[in-house]
């Protein structure tokens, strides 16, 4: 599983952080950081994160 976040779209809502905190974090500067190739057992949380992104900026590739 590979995650791609379109950082041009991302507006730092942070909803992905609540859905998959192991994968997505907001850094002290208020910007999103994420693990691009997380463990497959986190798939459900990552799918949830992609669903709840208001900008729909997260895509998942297998």
């Amino acid at each position: 599983m590979r995650i791609i976040v379109d950082m041009d779209r991302c507006q730092d809502h942070g909803q992905c952080v609540f859905a998959a905190p192991e994968v997505f974090q907001i850094n002290p500067a208020g910007r999103l950081e994420y693990t691009a190739e997380p463990d497959d057992e986190l798939r459900e949380a990552v799918e949830e994160a992609a669903d709840v992104c208001p900008l729909q900026a997260i895509t998942i590739e297998d």
Binding site: Q11, D12, G14, V17, F18, G30
Partner: peptide
């Protein structure tokens, strides 16, 4: 401007 972080 910082509403998302503040709300979180």
């Amino acid at each position: 401007g910082g509403a998302a972080v503040a709300a979180a």
